Every structure is written in C-alpha cells, then in structure tokens.
Simulated assay, not measured.
Amino acid sequence: MNEVKRPVNSHKAYHAHVYFDEATVDFASELCREAGQRFGLQVGRVHEKLVGPHPMWSCQIIFGSKDFEQLISWLDEHRNGLTVLVHALSGNDLDDHTHYAYWLGDSQTLDVSQFTA
C-alpha cells in the first residue's frame, strides 16, 4: 500500500470510487445511491468486476468542487471501513490517478499502465 493522501479540494471536478468486495457490495451500493440522492450527484454502475485502473470492484460518484467538502466528510463518516479513491478530473488521466489521487481509508495500488501506453 502507498502513503495515504487525504482529499484536497484543488480542482473543479472529481470522481469518488467506492471500493468493495462480495461481502460489502450491498452496503457499498446503498452508500453510493444515498450519496447520489443526498447531494444530487450522478452515480455510476456498481461494477462487480475490475474496471479501468481499479484493483477492486467499485462504484463511481461524479462531483464538483462545490460539493467536495460536504460529500467527502459524509463519505468518510458513513463508509464503514470501505476504501474510497477520490481523484481530480484535470484532463490528464495519469496525473488524476497518481498526483491527484486521494484516499479515505487504506490506499490501494492502481494499475495506471493503460494511461502510459
């Protein structure tokens, strides 16, 4: 695992990827659904497979800087031990998933090889 960098609101747009496994899929699905409803945000599919650079199953929440503080605080309080990757949407996928990658919970190693090919 890498050093854990806490989320910093320094960009206009973000993704939060809630990571889960077979035992926590129902809780994670509900967490993402509730976040979307509570904050009026777009929530992606609940992926019960590996997608993109993510080392675990995940669900994506799309949000902007205006929702950052409230959403991150709420996710941190309600994630019940799940790991959440928060990354900027700067237009550079490699930077977004490395330099601008922040964590709630334990950091994970992302497979960023698709961004360097």
Rank of each mutant, 00 (worst) to 15 (best):
Trp74Ser: 10
Tyr100Asp: 00
Val84Phe: 03
Phe63Leu: 11
Ile61Asn: 08
Leu71Ala: 03
Ile72Met: 05
Arg45Leu: 07
Ser90Lys: 12
Gly44Thr: 11
His78Asn: 15
Val84Leu: 08
Asp111Ser: 05
Phe39Ala: 14
Met56Val: 06
Cys59Gly: 11
Trp103Lys: 00
Ser73Gln: 11
Ser65Pro: 06
Ala88Asp: 04
Phe63Met: 10
Glu34Tyr: 06
Asn2Trp: 02
Val46His: 01
Ile61Gly: 06
Val84Ile: 15
Asp106Arg: 09
Ala88Pro: 14
Val25Met: 05
Val8Leu: 15
Cys59Ala: 15
Pro53Ala: 09
Asn9Leu: 14
Ser113Met: 07
Gly36His: 10
His11Thr: 00
Asp67Met: 05
Asp67Trp: 00
Cys32His: 02
Asp21Lys: 06
Lys5Asp: 01
Gly40Ser: 14
Cys59Ser: 13
Ala101Glu: 03
Gly36Thr: 12
Arg79Asn: 10
Thr83Trp: 01
Pro55Glu: 01
Tyr102Lys: 01
Ser90Arg: 13
Ala28Arg: 06
Gly64Ser: 11
Ile72Glu: 01
Leu75Cys: 05
Ala35Glu: 06
Gly52Glu: 13
Asp96Asn: 12
Gln60Asp: 08
Gln108Glu: 14
Arg45Gln: 09
His99Cys: 12
Phe115Tyr: 15
Ala23Ser: 12
Arg79Cys: 06
Ala28Phe: 04
Ser10Lys: 13
Thr24Ile: 14
Leu89Thr: 01
Tyr100Gln: 07
Cys59Lys: 04
Phe39Asn: 12
Val86Ile: 13
